[in-house]
Design a protein around this nucleic acid. Structure first.
Lengths: 119, 119
DNA sequence: GTAGAACTTGACACTGATGTCAGATTCAAG
DNA sequence: CTTGAATCTGACATCAGTGTCAAGTTCTAC
């Protein structure tokens, strides 16, 4: 799969896909001419990466995390080191707080929206 | 209440509190010498503002939204215009998607953490 | 082989809330 | 008063992913 197709399938820009590669998050084979050639599994991986970015993780953490994730191919996965587990636990808690904040904001918006629709 | 105390009570930096003022989000009385003097209700308001920023709303949207929120004092609140309601509904849906993404990321982290603790 | 679409690398810009620093002023307590 | 803590304004930096443009190369279909 070429980069344009992958971009279309994931909704992630080509620019970002190339950036992910420089960050060591997404490998690609190359055609003889140098064009990137992605496997099918790249679609799921890119979506995961995008989600983790949205969750506020930085490239480095994602890079450490990815090999520990259960692969869609069912391939072998590395086990996280204690240090990484500690980091990820902190991230997990941060995400929990973020979710709680978002729910409160959503409730705030709902309240205003409903007040307007009722008025 | 002075800015330092407000910062301590809300966990938001003085820098940010001054910035909120420039954005029209947070008004303050002034002492004769020019120091800001906040009412008690500012604490709740700042926390709300912070949550809305965290939810990805920009200053302008928050500025439009704030007068429509039910005030902690139970004071009168403006009703959102149809245009604003449309905007807020879009934001609400975006936040919903964001929450769903975060939950997926949290699950991903949990999976890796649990795999490490089991291993 | 040729035209046009797709891809390559590299560089620069931007966003927008927040950190930080400097120099001046005000406040509060002794 | 005086002194030190707190606050003021203004300016500049930062972060990190992403947008965008340029000039050149490769791919694909006719």
């Amino acid at each position: 799969m070429r980069i344009g197709e992958l971009a279309r399938h994931t909704g992630v820009s080509e620019r970002s896909l190339r950036y992910y590669e420089t960050q060591g998050l997404l490998a690609a084979d190359r055609t003889p001419g140098g064009h990137r050639d992605y496997p099918e599994a790249a679609v799921d991986r890119v979506i995961r990466i995008q989600e983790l970015y949205a969750a506020g993780l930085h490239s480095e953490k994602i890079r450490q995390l990815l090999p520990c994730m259960r692969d869609q191919d069912g391939g072998p996965s590395t086990v996280a080191t204690p240090r990484l587990v500690a980091d990820l636990t902190a991230e997990r808690d941060r995400i929990d707080r973020m979710i709680a904040d978002l729910v409160r904001s959503r409730d705030t918006l709902d309240e205003v929206i409903q007040a307007a629709e009722a008025g």
